[in-house]
Design a protein around this nucleic acid. Structure first.
Lengths: 229, 229
DNA sequence: TCAAAAGTGTTAACCATACACCCATGC
DNA sequence: GCATGGGTGTATGGTTAACACTTTTGA
């Protein structure tokens, strides 16, 4: 059943740049393409937008279908529309970037039948289409956004130690941070709730675990707080 | 000559949110729709993306065709794809926002045959489609971006007085700024070149005119400067 | 008892803020 | 000579940045 239009319409897709963090480094979720073009190459998860669904909805659906991930922070990144970015036909793609709590998704995605796997952002394989450029832009965005919005927490487990948070920032910003100053600043914002729990299974003194309180953040933001690192 | 696809494709458009500044307030360029839907209503300039052209290219072409404006700062804003945003069919629109030196474009746009006109941002007419939401987002973006990137200059004439620049910031940020601190800060960044000229036709002491030096900014940025207000 | 990371305070430099008066010019 | 905006300096308080040692725990 063909669909006919008076003028040519480009195809519309969504692609997702999914970041995870496992306290050594920042990871990116890729899938191996089963079909041409770029068969066998690694690519961003994504696919065609259905005619009756919203863009973000499409992005969430594709990520769920291809990687099994359903709970994530998702934000529109940029729309890529170079006429030659797909060798088959004109395809415009709305790219999203996503942050997930990797610990909860590690096994699932890695063992997925569609050949999904996590790669260190610093060491990615060659990517299909213009996906390298999309990843690059997403990483830039993450770098800048993490400094003035509390989105880093989306990459950590529910409960985390301050040193884990610090390492996250050090990895993303690619610069060392003074421990004392970091703690002072982050704690003084009043966004973290002490859980009264401590790390388990560590081979040294266990650290206190904290929880990020989004509602507290919304309250304080309204009173003029601005998160900044 | 119809175009046929195996699956339905949404239509793809670009829309432009064009800001101008005339030292009293911030203005927005709108055009009056000649056709249904929303005939006679004011709307953002924009139109369909041609099959062989890039997105930004399409945005520039539409702005040139509908408003005569060709030299402007243009940046992709967001892609709007709610399935019901256009009553006719599914239309996904890539929105751009643009900053123009209004003084150079005032007459042209206002007298244009396509009924283009500048409206104060604070007092806009009802807009077609979801254009009010697009404008809202663009204004938000302008507000935040103007604080950490030197894009305000795109709204001013080539040569401008510091008080004009200050008023621009006061209007966009909707808050008063201390004159001495503003001057100290902006001049200390070393981005402005004194033109050795002064205002003409003013009814009081004429102010020095400055020029923003984009190349100087690029140099200093590489050395770690970050513009911030 | 040693290794590894947790946790904690103080000082100095810098930057942001607040604030008021004189100057040049056109009418 | 007066009205209008142009142009300038300083003092204070708050914030950031630099820096080192003690504590806890498991192996």
């Amino acid at each position: 059943m063909p669909y006919t239009y008076q003028y040519p319409h480009p195809a519309l897709t969504v692609d997702g740049v999914v970041f995870g963090f496992d306290d050594a480094d920042l990871k990116l979720l890729l899938i191996q393409r089963a079909l041409d073009p770029f068969q066998g190459k690694w690519a961003l998860p994504g696919g065609f937008v259905r005619i009756e669904e919203g863009l973000e909805q499409a992005a969430r659906r594709e990520l769920a279908e291809e990687t099994g991930i359903t709970r994530l922070y998702l934000e529109q990144l940029f729309t890529f529309g170079d006429p030659k970015r797909d060798p088959r036909e004109r395809v415009v793609s709305v790219a999203y970037y996503a942050l997930v709590k990797l610990a909860a998704h590690r096994v699932r995605a890695a063992s997925d039948a569609r050949h999904a796997a996590w790669f260190p952002v610093a060491d990615l394989p060659a990517l299909a289409f213009d996906h390298a450029a999309i990843v690059e832009l997403a990483f830039q965005r993450l770098k800048t956004k993490v400094r003035y919005e509390p989105i880093g927490f989306e990459l950590l487990p529910e409960k985390f130690a301050l040193s884990e948070l610090q390492r996250l920032y050090e990895v993303i910003l690619a610069q060392p941070i003074d421990k004392r100053n970091f703690r002072k600043k982050i704690l003084s914002m009043g966004l973290l709730q002490d859980t009264d729990e401590i790390q388990q299974d560590v081979t040294h003194r266990a650290a206190r675990l904290y929880r990020f309180e989004p509602r507290r953040y919304e309250q304080l933001k309204r009173k003029g707080l601005n998160f900044e690192l």
